[in-house]
């Protein structure tokens, strides 16, 4: 439900990161986002059919506070000359890395 979803978002340490270049690599995401703290994992968004990066990813931090700092300070800055957008995400589930293609 919506209430549950909102509750999950408030506790989450996972961010959806969008507006990336298709050429941006996991390495670059790691470098930029670990400036806010230890990362648990990065899941690159992939094209459903071609299985190639398609402009988004999920970044999960070890601590909520680090994710908050990423929303405050990395959101709106540039990576590969593109303005990175972050959104809270309730948590990554297998299968969600596949974009619309």
């Amino acid at each position: 439900s919506r209430m549950q979803q909102e509750k999950l978002l408030k506790m989450s340490s996972t961010l959806y990161v969008g507006n990336l270049s298709y050429y941006t690599t996991e390495e670059q995401i790691y470098e930029l986002f670990s400036k806010c703290g230890d990362l648990k994992r990065v899941v690159m968004g992939l094209d459903k059919f071609k299985k190639t990066p398609c402009g988004f990813c999920f970044v999960e931090y070890c601590e909520r506070l680090c994710a908050e700092n990423a929303v405050r300070y990395i959101n709106g800055t540039r990576l590969d000359d593109r303005v990175v957008r972050t959104d809270w995400d309730a948590g990554f589930k297998e299968g969600r890395q596949f974009g619309r293609g």
């Binding site: 400036k35 806010c36 700092n69 405050r72 300070y73 709106g76």
Partner: peptide, 11 residues
């Protein structure tokens, strides 16, 4: 504050 805060403010 974390270094990223200063970097973001400078930008």
């Amino acid at each position: 504050y974390p270094l990223v805060m200063y970097a973001a403010v400078f930008i």
